[in-house]
Design a protein around this nucleic acid. Structure first.
Length: 439
DNA sequence: TCTGGGGTCCTAGGACCC
DNA sequence: TCTGGGGTCCTAGGACCC
């Protein structure tokens, strides 16, 4: 996820008042995806759990109203959810990823430039449009997304990304019939009172730590921050917070960003049950390595660094704790899974310690470069080409027949360590065998 | 019993070079 | 006694986001 990138100095603040940004955010996205295929869940409380069924990571409005917090450990709210008759499902990323792509395709028709910001959010550049044009376009777009994908969205519009983001949060608090799903900063009657009603910690870019420090300085609301002295804030908190001041004043410092190749790729999972043996850890690491390398090839990159990490359960206080990590730099960058599997196995052996109950393992790839400027190694040149064809074939098969159809034996078959997904719904849109049935 | 996964950016400080 | 100064690269840690 990108965060406040782009311009390196606030001096570049764009004073062109024609800038208009729209932020489209899917409402309760994971829940909405599930409801598209289970319309009977409309109006019922629905919660989606994280990987391993550990935490609540998406909530329908009904569940939010019950006071269940984002990220709440499932075991602490299970009783409450059951009592309310809530529907609880494991997360189904195959479905959400596909639904997200459909939403983004619709949005792309409504602006010359878009920036896919996360699985459920997208920025649109509406610079130069009049307030009336924005009104018409936003209204049509919200209806089109709903009609073509079934997903309800909210849109916030403003002269800077920060204000558009804030409008997006405000629109979600309003009754739908009052806003039609969008709000434009340009049409707000009393902007100062809106800003003063917004706690500084609710601003985009101000987390819990910064909120606490700012409040100690007497800066409690978004309005307080907007009225603070930029130079003083920069000295104390750096350029990131200074930019927020300008953005709140309507001067855009953050532009749309092009989607670039990832600079680091992580694949990790908690285990469904604790794991102690090197063999089982090795299977999990092989799986994660394979997944990470698939992502690497999908973006057309090579990696020259791999690290393995393994952790015991940090919440189990009465248990011996250990977290190991070992990384290796490769002489030549590669996208070959087979080679990386050997490197990963070696890294694991270097950081493994026996007699611990491990609960999580993962792999990181770094030193990423484009495969177009590959450095060849004359010793292994012929191999490289053969490996490339093999990898392409594997990726192709897994794409056509479903992920995991063809895999390396190192990943194991039993996979006792695999995560729990006890309440998974179907891959309605991406597997022939799981298409929704109409009776 | 049970507590997710995957990212980005900024800053400070040290090493090293000329 | 006097003992340069500036630039770059790398890394670790902090903070934030979805």
């Amino acid at each position: 996820m990108r965060k406040f990138g782009g311009l390196s100095a606030v001096l570049c603040a764009n004073t062109d008042n024609q800038r208009r940004f729209a932020l489209v955010d899917c409402n309760n996205f994971y829940v909405s995806c599930e409801r598209v295929f289970r319309p009977d869940w409309e109006g019922c409380p629905v919660a989606v759990l994280s990987n391993n069924d550990g935490c609540v990571i998406a909530r329908s409005q009904e569940v939010k109203d019950m006071g269940v917090a984002m990220g709440a450990p499932y075991h602490t709210v299970r009783g409450q959810l059951a009592q309310a008759g809530a529907i609880v499902v494991s997360s189904n990323y195959t479905l959400y990823g596909d639904m997200s792509a459909r939403v983004m395709r619709v949005l792309a028709d409504y602006a010359p430039t878009i920036e896919v910001y996360s699985i459920d959010e997208c920025w649109l550049d509406w610079s130069g449009l009049s307030t009336a044009e924005i009104n018409t376009r936003a209204s049509a777009m919200v209806r089109a997304v709903r009609r073509m994908t079934g997903i309800p969205v909210s849109v916030g519009i403003g002269p800077s990304k920060t204000l558009a983001k804030q409008m997006n949060r405000w629109v979600k608090k309003q009754p739908l019939d009052k806003t039609n799903g969008f709000m434009d900063w340009a049409t707000v009657e009393d902007p100062e009172s809106l800003l003063s009603a917004c706690a500084v910690g609710d601003l985009w870019g101000i987390g819990r730590r910064l909120q606490a420090t700012l409040e100690r300085m007497g800066i409690r609301s978004a309005l307080d921050l907007r009225n603070a002295q930029p130079a003083r804030i920069r000295q104390r908190f750096g350029v990131v917070v200074e930019r927020i001041i300008y953005e709140l004043s309507g001067f855009s410092c953050l532009d749309l960003e092009a989607v670039e190749a990832k600079k680091g790729i992580v694949a990790s999972r908690s285990f469904g049950q604790p794991v102690e043996t090197l063999n089982e850890l090795s299977e999990a690491i092989a799986s994660h390595t394979t997944r990470a390398m698939e992502k690497l090839r999908a973006q057309g990159s090579l990696a020259a660094y791999l690290a393995v990490f393994i952790n015991t359960n940090r919440f189990a206080e009465n248990q011996a704790q250990y977290s190991g990590r070992f990384g290796m730099r490769l002489p030549v960058a590669t996208d070959d899974s087979m080679r990386m599997l050997r490197v990963a196995r070696h890294c694991l052996e270097c950081c493994y310690r026996p007699h611990f109950r491990y609960n999580k393992a993962g792999v990181m790839l770094a030193d990423i470069s484009s495969s177009r400027c590959e450095q060849t190694d004359w010793l292994t040149k012929g191999d490289g080409e053969r490996q490339r064809v093999l990898m392409q074939t594997l990726d192709g098969l897994n794409k056509s027949y479903g992920s995991g159809s063809v895999f390396s034996a190192a990943q194991g078959i039993d996979r006792r360590w695999q995560m729990r997904r006890n309440f998974r719904t179907q891959a309605y849109t991406t597997r022939w065998s799981e298409l929704p049935l109409v009776r």
